[in-house]
Computed example of a mutant assay.
Amino acid sequence: MPELPEVETVRRTLNELIAGKQIERVTVTLPRIIQKPQEPEIFAAALAGHTIQSVERRGKFLRIILDGLVLVSHLRMEGRYGVYKQDEAVELHTHVRFHFVDGTELRYKDVRQFGTMHLFAPGEDLTLPPLNKLGIEPLDEAFTLQAFKKEVAHRTTKIKPLLLNQEYIVGLGNIYVDEALFSAGIHPERTANTLKAADWSRLYDAIRATLSRAVDAGGSSIKSYVNGQGEMGMFQHELLIYGREKELCRSCGGPITKTVVGGRGTHICLRCQPLPKLRTKAKQVRQSAK
C-alpha cells in the first residue's frame, strides 16, 4: 500500500498535471470504487462542468479540490492515476476516467480493485469518514516532539502497531515504520510506555528524516507503485532494513531478521535494536534485599 511519501509524490505530480483542467464528463466502469454517493451516475453528474483547483493530501488520502466539491481518493494496494490523451488506448483495469474539455483524461487504474472515492461539499470531507478520525501529520509543523509524545508515550501498546495506527499519526506504513525504528535503535515490540526521553527524541527525528528523504526520492517502488507520470520512486535503493532479511546490517554487520509484530512482517537487527530484558518482580525483590 502506498504510504505518505508515495501519496505525496502522486499529489505533487497530479497537481502539476491536472490543476486548472475542467471536467467534461466522468466514466465509471467499476461502481464499488465510488463510496459517496453510492450511485456512480450521481457521482459522474455531480463532477461534470467542475474545474480542478489543486490536489492536496491528508495522510494516505488524496484530496482533489474542485470549485465547489472535494474528491477524496484512497489508492489502497495498487491504485494509480495517470493523465492520457483521450484517443490513447485504455489499459485493462482502468475503472474511472475523468474526461477533460481540453482532450485529455485523468484515468484511475486499480488491479486489486480496493481503491475508494468519496465526493463531498467543501469542508465536509474533514468532518466525516474516512478523514474525520485521522491523527497528526508527521511532516507538519504541528508535529513536534511534545505533540508526538502526548499522543502515544503513555500507551501500553507495542510501538510498531502504535505507529501504524492512523488515528494517532498518519501516513506511516510498514516500510517507513521499520526504517524509522531501526534508525532510532528501538525494537518494534517495546511498549510505548517503556521508552525513555532519549528514545522518543531519536524516534521523532528518525520519522521526520526518513519520510523527508523518501519524499525527496519520490517514494519507494517496492511493488507496482508509480507516480502520476508513470515514474518509479527511488527510495527503495536507500532502505536500510526493510526487505533486507538474511542480509548483514550496514551499521553493525549483524544479521537482519524478519518476524511478525502486530500481524505485520517486520525487519529487525537485534544488535542495533535490542529488546530490553524485563526483570521479574522476584528478581527486583532479591536485588533490593542485597
Score class of each variant (00 low, 15 high):
105 E>N: 07
52 I>Q: 03
16 E>M: 12
12 R>P: 13
227 N>Q: 08
208 R>V: 02
54 S>V: 05
197 A>M: 08
183 S>T: 00
262 G>T: 11
244 R>I: 14
168 Y>M: 10
84 Y>V: 00
101 V>I: 08
175 I>S: 01
201 S>M: 06
76 R>I: 15
172 L>F: 06
166 Q>Y: 00
63 R>D: 12
130 P>E: 06
77 M>H: 06
230 G>R: 13
46 A>Q: 14
3 E>R: 03
64 I>W: 10
189 E>T: 01
4 L>K: 00
134 L>Q: 07
138 P>D: 09
123 G>K: 15
287 Q>A: 13
173 G>L: 11
90 V>T: 06
17 L>N: 03
23 I>C: 13
289 A>Y: 08
236 Q>E: 08
6 E>H: 05
54 S>I: 02
156 T>N: 15
80 R>I: 14
26 V>R: 01
163 L>P: 05
153 A>S: 15
158 K>F: 12
40 P>N: 07
281 K>G: 01
96 V>H: 07
187 H>D: 15
168 Y>D: 05
242 Y>C: 07
138 P>V: 07
247 E>M: 08
185 G>I: 05
290 K>W: 04
35 Q>K: 11
165 N>E: 09
98 F>C: 00
287 Q>P: 05
191 T>M: 09
73 S>F: 13
176 Y>E: 07
267 H>M: 12
102 D>G: 03
114 F>A: 14
273 Q>N: 05
57 R>W: 08
139 L>E: 04
246 K>E: 15
6 E>P: 06
14 L>W: 09
288 S>A: 10
178 D>H: 00
138 P>G: 05
196 K>S: 15
117 M>H: 13
175 I>V: 06
63 R>G: 03
258 K>N: 14
3 E>I: 02
166 Q>K: 03
237 H>M: 08
159 I>V: 11
215 V>H: 03
2 P>T: 02
290 K>N: 03
161 P>D: 04
237 H>E: 11
191 T>W: 08
5 P>Y: 02
262 G>I: 13
54 S>G: 01
254 G>C: 09
2 P>L: 02
282 A>Q: 11
194 T>M: 10
40 P>F: 04
12 R>E: 11
230 G>P: 09
95 H>D: 03
70 V>L: 02
282 A>C: 07
